[in-house]
Each structure stands twice: as structure tokens, then as C-alpha cells.
């Protein structure tokens, strides 16, 4: 959900950086060079070490605590010093045998799926639009995208929530639906949430894909046009294959972000959503832990989320590596 722009920038850098270093990594004969290479391999790890250490302390320890919590009987009394009892996998048994957990899980996956599809489709469309526009319009569209991207999730959610307000909202005024409660029904609630999440997700996809588009040699497209390919065919046979690696990456990242969505759902629920019908995993884990003081089962839900995220991450890493080799 909350990758910093710097992270995202780093991710987008990966393909180009790897293609630049790829030739240097080629095998070279001779013992002298091999020794030299071995010595050289120590340096990068040494440089990585401080960062790895910081991450291990800042992220590793909380993760370790989360695992411990999920295996204990840990409620408010334990916060106030009572010894926590080990219960093994009891917390996991509790959530996994509860029908509601599965409802929330499938709902979360479905929500992420719809949002990723919309984000990537519209993102690619806008990237092509950017590519086709003249300089002035392109500047205008880019600026709008950047503004949408730069706005904090909380701020934009509150603004969208006002737009869909039952009594004073812009949407109801525009469509002449005075008194329509958008957030009260799960379907329209998720429609509003989807608009917000997609709206915020599109700029990253659009810019990344646009960067990819600008790398496709003009001559290729010209040749295809001369061979009689129309615009759709040019996209299908020339642009799409060239963009495939980038699309894989932005799709994987969007899956990760949309799976972990929290702020938008939490704020919209406060503004009127029926919590039980609109909980997604992130919000659900929060409600159990902080709301009901069941830190143990909340941790178990969080662990399940982490595991699913790891699976999704592995998929992303694999596609990234496949591009590299």
C-alpha cells in the first residue's frame, strides 16, 4: 500500500540497470580475473550490510514479535503484565475454522483482482494516450497524474467521501439522486473504494508504461505500419510484446498494494459503511487487534496476510529475475 515514491522509482529502475550490467557479468577465463572477481564480490555485500542490518532490526524484530503473538493467548491482561500462555496454533485454528475469515479473505482477493485489472488497463491506456499527445497536452495530463499520485491516501479518501456524501455530495447532486447512501450498501461501497484505489494507482502504471513505450524504436512501428498493420494490430504484435516485462512488474506490484489496502476502507467505513459487510483483511486484522484487544488472533490474521504477500512477492521476484537472465 504505502511504498514510498523512492521505492517505486527503484523498482522501475531495475530493468534498465540490469541490462546495463549484464554484459559485465559475462564469464571471463583466467585465474587472475576470477580472484579479482571474488575479491570484488565481498565489497557489494559489505556495502549492503548496514542496510540489511537496519532492515533486520526495524522489520525483522516486529515480524518476530508478530509470530510470537500469534502463538500465544495474548489479550489486554497480558499487556498489563500477566504471563502469556502458549497455545500453539490455536489462534490459527480459530480463524481458519471461522467462516467469516474466509469471506473476508475471498472478498479481499476479489477486491484486489478487480482493482489491479482496472488500474493496469486504464494505466496502459493513459500511457498510450500520453505517447500520442502533443507536448502541451502531455504536460497537462502528466501534471494531473502527478497530483493524483502525490495526494496522501487519507486526504484523497476524505475528499472522495465528501463527493459521495449522502446529503451534500457532489455525485448525488450531479446525478439527481438526492439522499442516495452510496456507502451503506456493500456493492456501491466497494465501487467507491475501487474508484479511489484505482484513481491513486493509475499514475504509477501510466508513467512506468509510458517510459517503456518511449523505448520502443519508432522504426519498428513504422515498419509494421508499412506492412499494413493497423493501430490495434501494432499494439497487439509490436507494443505489447515489448511492454510485457514492464506489465508483469507493474501488475505484480499493484497486486501487492491492492491486497494490503487499509486507509481507504477504514475511512469509508467510518463514513458509513457496514463494517461486517465491508471488512478487508487489513482492516479486519486491525479491528480484532486494536478494537477487540485480541492481539493474538489479530496477529494470526496478520501472519496469514504476510504469507499470502510473500507468495505474491515471490511471483513478482520470479518475473523480475526471469527478465534479468
Amino acid at each position: 500500500m504505502s511504498l514510498t515514491p523512492a521505492d517505486q522509482a527503484r523498482v522501475t529502475d531495475v530493468p534498465s540497470a540490469s541490462s546495463a550490467t549484464a554484459p559485465a557479468a559475462g564469464p571471463s577465463p583466467g585465474g587472475r580475473t576470477r580472484r579479482l572477481r571474488r575479491r570484488r564480490t565481498v565489497l557489494p555485500y559489505g556495502l549492503l550490510a548496514p542496510a540489511v542490518l537496519v532492515i533486520a532490526v526495524m522489520l525483522g524484530y516486529p515480524l518476530y514479535r508478530l509470530v510470537i503473538l500469534s502463538l500465544q493467548d495474548f489479550g489486554l491482561p497480558q499487556v498489563f503484565g500477566q504471563p502469556a500462555e502458549w497455545v500453539g496454533l490455536e489462534n490459527f485454528r480459530e480463524i481458519l475454522t471461522e467462516g467469516y475469515f474466509w469471506t473476508v479473505l475471498w472478498r479481499t482477493l476479489a477486491f484486489a483482482g478487480v482493482n489491479v485489472f482496472l488500474t493496469v488497463t486504464l494505466g496502459v491506456a493513459i500511457a498510450n494516450l500520453l505517447n500520442a499527445l502533443g507536448a502541451r497536452m502531455r504536460l497537462l495530463v502528466s501534471t494531473s497524474l502527478i497530483l493524483a499520485w502525490a495526494m496522501p491516501a487519507l486526504t484523497s479518501t476524505v475528499v472522495w467521501q465528501w463527493i459521495f456524501d449522502t446529503q451534500y455530495g457532489l455525485a448525488n447532486w450531479l446525478f439527481g439522486r438526492q439522499g442516495e447512501s452510496w456507502l451503506a450498501e456493500p456493492i456501491s461501497f466497494f465501487a467507491v473504494a475501487t474508484i479511489i484505489v484505482t484513481w491513486m494507482g493509475i499514475p504509477f502504471v501510466a508513467f512506468t508504461v509510458y517510459a517503456g513505450l518511449s523505448q520502443i524504436p519508432e522504426s519498428l512501428l513504422e515498419a509494421a505500419a508499412l506492412d499494413g498493420a493497423n493501430a490495434i494490430e501494432r499494439f497487439r504484435y509490436v507494443i505489447f510484446p515489448a511492454l510485457k516485462p514492464i506489465l508483469l512488474i507493474v501488475t505484480s506490484l499493484s497486486v501487492l498494494w491492492d491486497f494490503r489496502v487499509f486507509t481507504q476502507i477504514f475511512v469509508l467505513q467510518r463514513a458509513g459503511g457496514v463494517s461486517r459487510d465491508t471488512n478487508l483483511l487489513g482492516v479486519y486484522a486491525y479491528r480484532i487487534s486494536i478494537g477487540e484487544n485480541a492481539f493474538d488472533t489479530g496477529a494470526a490474521v496478520a501472519i496469514v496476510m504476510v504469507l499470502i504477500t510473500v507468495l505474491l512477492t515471490l511471483f513478482y521476484m520470479r518475473s523480475l529475475l526471469r527478465e534479468e537472465s
Partner: peptide
């Protein structure tokens, strides 16, 4: 890296406590 990323996600749930 995947492990670290996972850790990042894990801690996100912790920091989720601050979000509200």
C-alpha cells in the same frame, strides 16, 4: 529479498495500528 519484503509487509500491520 523476498524475506525482507515480507518483513516489510509484516511490520506494516504493526504500523497499521498507527494509521487510525
Amino acid at each position: 529479498t523476498a524475506g525482507l519484503l515480507a518483513a516489510a509487509c509484516g511490520s506494516d500491520d504493526d504500523s497499521g495500528a498507527d494509521a487510525p
